[in-house]
């Protein structure tokens, strides 16, 4: 193996190790991020959540939201929802 070939092989090995290193770091970061979110969901310091998932205690048919339908007919209504 000449000097140039040796350098190429060494460079390739270093690159491979570096790639593993980057992948490993990403994996560690991903696990850490997931763990942090898990902690937030049970801690008092939560507050950055963008969605609401825990206040609905009456879901009973597997659907997250009720299915509404429109009603173009006139006549009597059961109630009115306006500002409160």
């Amino acid at each position: 193996m000449d000097r140039a070939q040796g350098l190429r092989r060494a460079t390739g090995l270093t690159g491979l190790l570096a790639a593993f290193g980057v992948a490993g770091s990403l994996a560690v970061a991903t696990v850490a991020y997931a763990a942090r979110n898990d902690n937030q969901s049970t801690g008092d310091n939560q507050g950055t959540s963008d969605g609401i998932t825990s206040t609905d205690s009456s879901t009973d048919n597997g659907s997250a939201w009720p299915e509404l339908s429109s009603d173009d007919g006139g006549g009597q209504r059961d109630a009115t929802s306006g500002g409160s």
């Binding site: 009603d71 209504r77 109630a79 009115t80 306006g82 500002g83």
Partner: peptide, 10 residues
């Protein structure tokens, strides 16, 4: 058919 609700502020 469900509960009929008018959605209107005023």
């Amino acid at each position: 058919g469900g509960w009929r609700v008018l959605v209107q502020d005023r």
